[in-house]
């Protein structure tokens, strides 16, 4: 289910940051030089039915935007990229996830700029949302 969720996030987010590379994880193609965005997500039980079986989940997602330090000395590229992601999260009201219904975003937080691997600068939006099994 988590891969389906991440794919749904990617599909929706990609439309908000057209031209930028959105990855499903920090894989081997992650280098920041192309103003990349990586999606990480975990799920946890949010609600259970009468028998104790989970039927709703909270998805905890982290979307990290990164740029190459040498190409983005003043950080303007990263700021623009991160803002686009944040605005996408703020406006998120639906996601197409097979077998589940998107309910609502319930938490949003951001991180400061950090340096990754000595050549990237990055910022993240952390957010949570609830999905219910159909």
């Amino acid at each position: 289910m988590i891969n389906t969720v991440k794919s749904a996030i990617k599909t929706s987010l990609q439309s908000a940051v057209s031209g930028k590379q959105v990855l499903l994880s920090h894989d081997g193609t992650w280098d920041g030089g192309k103003e990349q965005i990586a999606i990480e997500a975990t799920t946890e039980t949010f609600a259970r039915d009468q028998t104790g079986k989970p039927f709703a989940f909270q998805v905890n997602a982290v979307i990290t935007s990164a740029t190459y330090l040498d190409d983005d000395e003043n950080g303007s590229l990263l700021t623009a990229l991160h803002s686009a992601v944040f605005n996408w999260v703020m406006s998120l009201s639906s996601l197409t996830i097979t077998g589940y219904t998107f309910e609502s975003v319930t938490e949003i937080s951001e991180t400061e700029v950090e340096i990754l691997a000595e050549k990237l600068k990055a910022m993240s939006v952390n957010f949570s949302f609830i999905i219910t099994k159909n």
């Binding site: 039915d49 009468q50 028998t51 104790g52």
Partner: peptide
């Protein structure tokens, strides 16, 4: 006994 095995009330019983 695990879970809510009794019936009554409304909705998906939590307790």
């Amino acid at each position: 006994t695990f879970g809510v095995t009794s019936t009554g009330g409304y909705g998906m019983l939590q307790n």
